[in-house]
Design a protein around this nucleic acid. Structure first.
Length: 874
DNA sequence: TTACTGCATGGGA
DNA sequence: GTCCCATGCAGTA
């Protein structure tokens, strides 16, 4: 207090900022409210760095108190020493040394975060002199750093020191000088302060209680520090950002210290040897759901996420320990990112999420950026070039020169790099998480949730909240505590974000796993006599069973003429359907010989009790038929991609039965290949196989989306195909006129109707007697309709694969199969199932099977399919 | 020819 | 419609 002369004079004077000193300034000390640093002489700077500044210059000042633990005198009345102590819940203070010790000993991860964040802050505020506060809050814009820091019990003393705070400061002084220190500090540290629970809440509390001039203009949204960075960058004269955040917090929290409404607890340990700043912000989040969030970065304050969830740091205990080593360093998880192919490639450029880069990395005003020193988890230091490219009036941040590091870590696409900061060193630490290290179950979960970015993470959090929910609840976790828990916690690898679709699709393991998961879902049954509880998730009902589901044979549940519940099961060998009691639990592979309920039909030679019509009626209400069909199909074609074609058929069938669809082409979304997490009609079926069914007349969002999607797909396909056909025809006319004359095609019509002569040609090609042909690997769709058709692949489609012809062909196929024997009935019913419930048909029907079986007699029925798989037809 | 650099593109959120 | 970002690609060394 007394040591600091006016801020304005410090910037111009050559004298040490310390008014009690007459030496010339040469080094930087604490950050001033202006955002600049107090420039000190060597002696004062050393004293400051060593924590002796107050002892040296403030001995006669007020505010000296004794540590309640060790009795050491601590100055509590100036900004210089603000991080040298912490306020105790029961009153009194503790020096940071004792605070660290005690927090380690007493930390209780079960404590809600507010216990940690708020109490000491409010008390600290009370402990602050009115003068100090009024100076801060009442003197206009409060620098982002100083004001919050006043109430931050968790920030080590040395953090104020720029050299320790940020490696970048010394890495590139020119960069620093090019931008106001305030800007740099703001950008770099602002998120810390912003989300650091103690900071924010404390400030908020102070502001409110202290009438510190809350600005009505400062809406909550203004508080999103990270996003503000670019703006501020261009307007360094707005240093009140830090306060804006605080004010925003104040507004939102309605002044309650415990944002969660948790009563203050007077036992809050103020500091831990290891802190998870990434979670600290949760402690001040007034939203009720804050505590279940996991690993959110500080920058993502108060639920208005600025960082996408896929960038939220999700460190495991092991990772944190690995990063911190044996030191007592405080780890501040910043963000993480899954390496893309580009990132991991030889090009050596790691694309940084923009908001992460702007939040946690130094501000750069020039594309060249600056070198950034990063330490890996082994302690090895790397220097990357942190820069950006102008991109659409925005920026694209990259770390260049990461190849050696990535190679050193043996990282590849799909692995995750993590960025954190070590306090008080201020070092950026780059860790990694190998994708392959994730347990398969985790992967399963992850993949199953990875449909889209945000929800994905949220889902994952719910799946296994234990590690991080505890972190969140405590806000701080002692290293020892973490070690104790490490044996039972294995953090899930970060989910494959929505931006990693390519990566995910290319990852064969993941796909394989996904399919396994899907298959398992289809075979899951509720435990007998268990009534599910139905939960609504995003408008869809899901059944939950307390007991583990049963993995069994796919059957069709129905009610017989007597009103008794029965189930139909298909024999593995003969594919005939047998009626069994509803409560019969069947092995995954069931044959007639296992039919102990109906001995007359315990042989495959026995006639099927179910007629084709009956089966047709049954199938729409069944979601497991496809599984059995798939088993059958698996005997002939083991290609997993069959599922995708099934989905297509499902949608196709749905559409075919809904002729009253709107004709307008509506916006649609490419089908995401039924990645886990997909909410499409195929994927939302409850594992039990029961639950809501999507009738063909269903108008739910999912069904409509499916229909729209298909319609749009078909329209696009038709359009493109027409264009292609027209072009092809033109070329043929011009180049191969004689050949053209030999063709049956009477006209180069662009009409792609089912009567297209081209289609006939295709049919003749596709009706090859060779059954293997239908599943030829040369076929892009493997004899299936691919709902996920990509525009660039559409040209591979047959000219006859337009919507109308497809409908007709499907209907033909349906009729054909219905009139066929058991096998084809099965297949046909699979198809029919889709009319009423697309997800059913998707569950394992083998188009390859249908194809080859049905083509023998009715090749036309599948001409579309063939054409779709015959590039030569184009 | 290869590697690097910087920007453009386009899919997806 | 905007923004992000993974990746493509042309220009350059």
């Amino acid at each position: 207090m007394s040591a600091a002369p006016s801020t304005s004079s410090s910037s111009t004077s050559k004298k040490c900022f310390n008014s009690d000193c007459v030496d010339f300034k040469s080094r930087k000390g604490w950050r001033l409210r202006s955002g600049e640093f107090a420039e000190l002489c060597d002696r004062c700077a050393s004293a400051y760095e060593e924590g002796r500044f107050c002892e040296t210059f403030h001995l006669s000042a007020t505010g000296w108190r004794c540590c309640d633990s060790c009795g050491k005198r601590v100055h509590c009345g100036c900004i210089v020493s603000i991080h040298a102590f912490t306020l105790l819940d029961a009153g009194g203070i503790e020096c940071m040394t004792c605070a660290r010790k005690n927090i380690v000993l007493t930390s209780n991860s079960a404590w809600p975060p507010s216990f940690f964040y708020n109490t000491p802050l409010s008390e600290r505020f009370k402990d602050l002199s009115v003068k100090s506060w009024s100076q801060l809050a009442g003197s206009g814009p409060v620098p982002w750093r100083q004001a919050p820091s006043l109430f931050n019990s968790s920030i080590p003393h040395s953090e104020l020191h720029p050299r320790n705070l940020y490696e970048i400061d010394r890495l590139n002084p020119s960069e620093r000088s090019s931008a106001p220190s305030l800007e740099k500090g703001r950008v770099e540290d602002f998120p810390d302060r912003l989300v650091n629970g103690s900071l924010k809440l404390g400030t908020r509390d102070i502001l409110e209680n202290g009438n510190a001039g809350t600005s009505s203009e400062e809406k909550p949204g203004v508080c999103l520090g990270i996003s503000q960075h670019p703006v501020l960058k261009e307007d360094p004269s707005t240093p009140q950002l830090g306060m804006a955040i605080s004010f925003a917090s104040l507004n939102e929290s309605n002044g309650q210290i415990g944002g969660l409404g948790t009563p203050l607890r007077q036992t809050a340990p103020p500091l831990l040897a290891k802190q998870f700043h990434g979670n600290l912000h949760n402690g001040v989040d007034s939203s009720p759901d804050t505590q279940i969030r996991i690993g959110r970065p500080r920058a993502d304050a108060r639920g208005r996420s600025q960082l996408l969830p896929r960038y939220w740091p999700r460190f495991t205990d092991e990772e944190l320990q690995q990063i911190s080593g044996n030191s007592n360093s405080v780890i501040t998880p910043l963000f993480e990112k899954m390496l893309s192919a580009s990132d991991a490639g030889r090009i050596g450029r790691l694309v940084l999420p923009k908001k992460c880069a702007e939040a946690y990395f130094p501000p750069i005003s020039h594309p060249e950026g600056l070198p950034l020193k990063v330490q890996d988890s082994k302690g090895k230091e790397w220097v990357f070039q942190f820069r950006f490219w102008p991109n659409n009036n925005s920026r694209m941040y990259v770390l260049e020169g990461v190849t050696p590091c990535i190679q050193n870590m043996r990282l590849q696409a799909g692995d995750i790099v993590t960025f954190s900061r070590l306090e008080p060193e201020g070092k950026l630490v780059m860790g990694f998480r190998k994708a392959s290290t994730a347990p398969s179950s985790d992967l399963d979960n992850d993949t199953s949730k990875a449909g889209n970015g945000v929800s994905t993470n949220g889902d994952v959090e719910l799946v296994d909240p234990s590690p991080w929910s505890k972190v969140d609840k405590s806000g701080y976790i002692a290293k020892e505590v973490l070690e104790a828990k490490s044996s039972i916690k294995k953090r899930k690898s970060s989910t494959l974000g929505s931006k990693s679709k390519r990566l995910r699709i290319e990852n064969e393991d993941m796909i394989e796993l996904k399919l396994t998961w899907e298959e398992a879902q289809r075979l899951l049954r509720p435990p007998p006599d268990h009534v599910p509880s139905v939960v609504m998730i995003e408008g869809f009902e899901f059944e939950e069973y307390e007991d583990a589901p049963i993995l069994g044979k796919a059957t069709i549940f129905a009610t017989d003429n007597l009103g008794q519940k029965i189930q139909w099961v298909q024999c593995e060998d003969c594919f005939k359907w047998r009626k069994l009691p509803a409560n019969a639990l069947l092995p995954s592979k069931w044959t007639c010989s296992s039919n102990s309920w109906d001995l007359e039909r315990s042989l495959c030679s026995a006639a099927q009790e179910l007629t084709a019509e009956q089966l047709e009626d049954l199938l729409p209400s069944c979601n497991l038929v496809a599984a059995s069909k798939k088993m059958k199909a698996a005997k002939q074609d083991a290609e997993n991609e069959a599922l995708e074609g099934l989905d297509t058929l499902a949608n196709l069938a749905i559409l075919g039965e809904n002729e009253a669809l709107p004709t307008s082409s509506q916006a649609t979304t490419k089908h995401p290949r039924h990645r886990p997490g997909c909410s499409c009609i195929v994927c939302i079926q409850p594992p039990s196989g029961k639950g809501p069914k999507h009738k063909q007349t269903c108008t739910c969002n999912v069904c409509q989306t499916v229909k729209r999607r298909f319609k749009t797909l078909m329209m696009k396909r038709e359009k493109k195909q027409s264009e292609k056909e027209a072009e092809t025809t033109r070329k043929k006319q011009q180049e191969t006129l004689p050949e053209k004359l030999l063709d049956d095609d009477p006209s180069p019509s662009t009409n792609t109707g089912s009567s297209s002569p081209n289609k006939k040609k295709v049919v003749s090609e596709g009706s090859d007697d060779d059954p293997n042909r239908s599943k030829s690997s040369t076929s892009p769709f493997k004899g299936q309709i691919d709902l996920n058709i990509q525009p660039e692949r559409e040209e591979e489609l047959s000219p006859g694969s337009d919507c109308g012809s497809m409908m007709k062909m499907l209907q033909d196929a349906r009729q054909q199969m219905l009139s066929s024997d058991g096998d084809n009935i099965s297949a046909g019913n699979q198809l029919l199932a889709g009319h009423g419930m697309g997800e059913n048909i998707s569950n394992g029907i083998s188009l390859g099977t249908i194809h080859q079986e049905s083509q023998k007699d009715h090749p036309s029925a599948f001409s579309m399919k063939v054409s779709a798989s015959s590039p030569a037809a184009g």
